[in-house]
Design a protein around this nucleic acid. Structure first.
Lengths: 178, 178
DNA sequence: GAAGATTGAGATTTCAATCTTC
DNA sequence: GAAGATTGAAATCTCAATCTTC
């Protein structure tokens, strides 16, 4: 069963109408990416939930734990997690209430707040991480050959570098205009 | 800058502890997939928003338009969109209020409700689709070589088939236990 | 004036319960 | 009893406004 047959919608193509097959390819790739991520994401959510964590909480704890000194500015956390600035505020609120994270003021710039992983937070992450890695191994890595996995990583890196110019540091996310 | 350095969290590996590099590979692939999808998804959301549609509304209209007779059961719609059953109810509520979709009762099984795309709905989709396809072309297809694109599709299909045993028909989503 | 962070209000989604039909 | 769909209540996220600090 092919998952993405030709759109039944008129193309309204202005000139040199792209063949239906072309449209089909694009929707297929995009659809595959969406379904793959949705499936993996759902599995991961169920797994971390077994350890009392939400998907977002898990990701924040993971990123903090892998940062030097276990801390990150709220802004950088927002940029890395594709959550809004206020969204990060709420997540850190929850994590702080749970004792997994604490806030620390910055001495050089009093505008910025750091989120710091606590020992409790590291322990919670350590409890959930092995199962998470097993899940990734089982559903994402193992089903692919070494070549396939390498090609997947390469392709994803190319696309990621295009759509996420600055998901790493404290650079501003320019939201490239369509 | 490598985006996913080794986790600073103790592995708590029971036996034959997987090398840190192994854990790194898994987190890298998973992270790349997450960031790639997050980036593309944000672009797509901004694009369809220009046509007064939400991401979810767009996907529902697309799936309905590509189905025979432009209709789908609420349950199947939920299975295909990774939204809960009640989530689909609300989305269809909004689309129906906007005149893009209408509900139709099933004559053979009076439990089921069909969501049917209206002409208005098809027109709205037709207005947003060309821009969507351009976006996919520009950010996902064009940056990759033909070989890379083919490899990406192949790999994604393998993984998708594993994590989504039944995203197509009216089969039940068994939520495979971790 | 801009950057960083937070808050209130509103929108969206899920969970559990309910209702109808098979 | 199970499947399909809906509803109320609660949780989560975003937008716009606000406040502090650079």
């Amino acid at each position: 069963v092919d998952e993405h047959a030709a759109a039944t919608v008129e193309q309204a193509a202005p000139d040199a109408a792209p063949a239906v097959d072309e449209a089909d390819l694009r929707l297929t790739v995009m659809g595959l990416l969406a379904e793959t991520w949705a499936g993996l994401s759902a599995l991961a959510a169920a797994q971390v939930a077994q350890h009392g964590l939400g998907e977002v909480e898990f990701e924040v704890l993971l990123r903090l734990s892998r940062s030097p000194d276990g801390l990150l500015r709220m802004t950088d956390l927002a940029a890395q997690t594709s959550l809004s600035s206020s969204g990060i505020t709420r997540v850190v609120d929850r994590l702080e209430a749970a004792g997994s994270v604490s806030r620390r003021a910055c001495v050089t710039d009093r505008r910025t707040t750091y989120a710091v992983v606590t020992e409790t937070g590291r322990a919670r992450l350590a409890a959930a991480l092995p199962g998470h890695l097993e899940l990734v191994e089982r559903w994402l890595v193992a089903p692919l050959s070494a070549d396939q996995l390498g090609a997947l990583v390469d392709a994803l890196r190319v696309v990621r570098d295009g759509v996420r110019p600055c998901a790493t540091a404290g650079t501003r996310p320019p939201v490239p205009q369509v």
